[in-house]
Simulated assay, not measured.
Amino acid sequence: MAVLVAIPARYASSRYPGKPLVPLTGAGGRSRTLIERSWLAAQAVDGVDRVVVATDDDRIRDACEGFGAEVVMTSSDCFNGTERCAVAHEALGGGYEIVVNLQGDAPLTPHWFIEDLVTGLRAAPDAGVATPVLRCDGAALNGFLADRKAGRVGGTTAVFAADKTAMYFSKEVVPFTSQTYADDAETPVFHHVGVYAYRPDALAAYPTWPTGPLERLEGLEQLRFMENGRKVLCVEVEARGRQFWELNNPEDVTRLETMMKQMGLQ
């Protein structure tokens, strides 16, 4: 029942080149790179047997080995993080029950998001992949809308059926709502958290499928599963008072640093 966490990281991001090595300063003035903070988030998860960083870049490898991470080198031909995780799992010899993709731009991911995700996938044998969703409060939704108004691609939203099967993911805010919400109000919008848990057969099949039109338009890798008829399970997680955001744009650095200092994360 072994669980592998793979953290895919590439240097040549089209929106933010060198993003994994961007320094983030937390409480007490402690500065660590984005990739180190993501690795530390993975280390805090219970029930994980192995954590690796999967990259094709020597600069990222050297930085990761410098703080003690295990690194798996992958091809630069990997189109996205899911493909990189598939290559890393194969390079390690396979054999894991579940492979978790903790994307390297989400260092504030609480450990219970991943623990609940693994539990949710184990309880749904008909699902090949699962991903967390977090109900937005008014403050988070307002942040999404502000990003879109400013022309920034911010977080991703998700809609799903009553049985938690994903119906769609988008970088637009879905479902549409014209209502305004107080910062602490509950909203009908769910933030998709950039973490995935895969069964090995679904992960191995993924690179064999062509990129579909929805994945290409949205730039969202999970849509390839849906475009090929694979069930994606949405696992609702609770913030428990914890702030959460990914580093999508240079403007997010200040936002993440403010959150880390407020939470006392060094």
Rank of each mutant, 00 (worst) to 15 (best):
E218H: 02
V52C: 04
G219H: 00
S178D: 15
F79I: 11
A106V: 13
A124G: 01
D77K: 12
L214G: 00
L34W: 06
P23A: 06
K149H: 09
S14M: 09
Y181C: 02
Q243V: 07
T258A: 15
D57V: 01
A88R: 09
S75F: 02
R15K: 13
V189R: 01
P20Y: 06
R255N: 05
M226G: 12
S13I: 07
V195C: 04
P213E: 11
Y198I: 05
S178F: 15
Y181K: 04
V173I: 10
D201Q: 03
H192E: 13
D252Y: 10
V51Y: 05
E236V: 13
T177E: 04
V100F: 03
G219D: 07
E227G: 08
A54R: 05
V118H: 01
G29A: 15
L121T: 02
Y206M: 07
L223K: 04
Y198V: 06
V193H: 08
V237A: 05
V189Y: 00
V153M: 02
A63T: 08
V173M: 07
V129R: 04
I7Q: 00
D184L: 06
N228C: 00
A140G: 03
Y181T: 06
V153Y: 01
H111Q: 13
K261I: 09
R10K: 13
V237P: 11
R135A: 14
V133K: 00
P132E: 00
R122W: 08
A239S: 14
V72A: 11
G155S: 13
D56K: 01
S14E: 12
T157E: 11
L117Y: 05
L217N: 11
T211K: 13
L247V: 10
